[in-house]
Nucleic acid binder design. Structure first.
Length: 113
DNA sequence: GCAATGACTGGTA
DNA sequence: TTACCAGCCATTG
């Protein structure tokens, strides 16, 4: 019954799985992913992304208000411009994703393996 | 076992 | 609109 360790691994796989299948030009929030998995919370999703997110399009998993942590913001902007993600930038800075337009509903087929 | 930390969220001012 | 606050939950020291 070493389920606990297995659950942690499965949780990571599920989070990465979701991040991987978010289509270009769309984005989901940490809370959205956590609510979909019904597991942990937004901070746990963020923790997984911080550790294993490098292997997936992490810029498609963002905060509920369409912003990102500062160090990531600058990197994500380039990807958004390249993918044509709907942005809500007023001036040259303060770039944030327009979640109303970029919102993406996670298909249930992506649930926990 | 307790305290601090973090790629968060929603509400109020 | 932005700024601040309290709540939440697993990980780490």
């Amino acid at each position: 019954m070493e389920q606990q360790a297995g659950d942690a691994e499965e949780y990571v796989e599920s989070v990465l799985r979701i991040a991987e299948q978010v289509p270009s030009g769309h984005a989901v929030s940490y809370g959205q992913v956590a609510a979909f998995l019904e597991r942990g919370g937004p901070r746990q999703v963020g923790a997984v992304m911080a550790r294993y997110g490098a292997a997936v399009p992490w810029w498609r998993v963002i905060r509920a208000d369409g912003t990102l942590a500062e160090p990531l913001r600058a990197r994500a902007r380039a990807h958004y411009l390249e993918e044509g993600t709907p942005l809500r930038s007023r001036l040259d800075e303060q770039v944030r994703v327009d979640m109303r337009a970029a919102a993406y509903e996670i298909p249930r087929s992506v649930g926990p393996l």
